[in-house]
């Protein structure tokens, strides 16, 4: 894991972006540290735009220049399939794309995180409904 490539956001911003956790339907909620946020830069190797989980796989260079394989869950599929008007589709992200991913890390050290915000080749692709819609209990989830 590269210290250069992963930075912790200021607490206030971290709390803001984690205010509405997007929880997978049965994926891995207990895995994540919802109160922490990291930002990772990487190159996409695979994008899965399928039910019930949208997931992305990418490579991150560590501080020695070695590639580390990472993965992340993104937004709830049915919500992303509404595409937010920004073009979410199976072709929205392609291998080779550069991403900057802000996400909740796992509780244990790992190369997995829960996506909160993503820049794809510099373009912000919302992972939550910009209209503020949420599921029951105030949470968007699948």
């Amino acid at each position: 894991m590269s210290a250069e490539r992963i930075c912790f956001l200021p607490l206030g911003l971290a709390l803001l972006v984690t205010a509405l956790p997007i929880a997978a339907h049965h994926g891995s909620n207990p895995n994540y540290a919802w109160d922490r946020t990291i930002t990772v830069n990487g190159v996409v190797t695979e994008f899965q735009f399928v039910y019930p989980h949208v997931s992305i796989y990418f490579d991150v260079k560590d501080d020695k220049g070695n590639l580390q394989h990472w993965s992340s869950e993104l937004g709830p599929t049915p919500i992303m399939m509404r595409n937010y008007g920004v073009g979410w589709s199976k072709n929205a992200i392609k291998p080779g794309d550069q991403i900057v991913l802000t996400c909740n890390p796992t509780k244990i050290p790992s190369n997995v995180c829960q996506g909160k915000k993503i820049l794809v080749n510099g373009k912000n692709m919302p992972l939550q409904d910009p209209k503020g819609a949420a599921g029951e209990d105030g949470q968007a989830k699948q």
């Binding site: 994926g27 895995n31 039910y51 992340s72």
Partner: peptide, 21 residues
């Protein structure tokens, strides 16, 4: 098949059961 892929690559990796491939 998709669930297995996800479990291997994200769910289980995030719990320390295996590495991200």
């Amino acid at each position: 098949s998709e669930e297995y892929h996800f479990n291997q690559g994200v769910r289980d990796s995030g719990a320390g059961k295996n590495s991200v491939r």
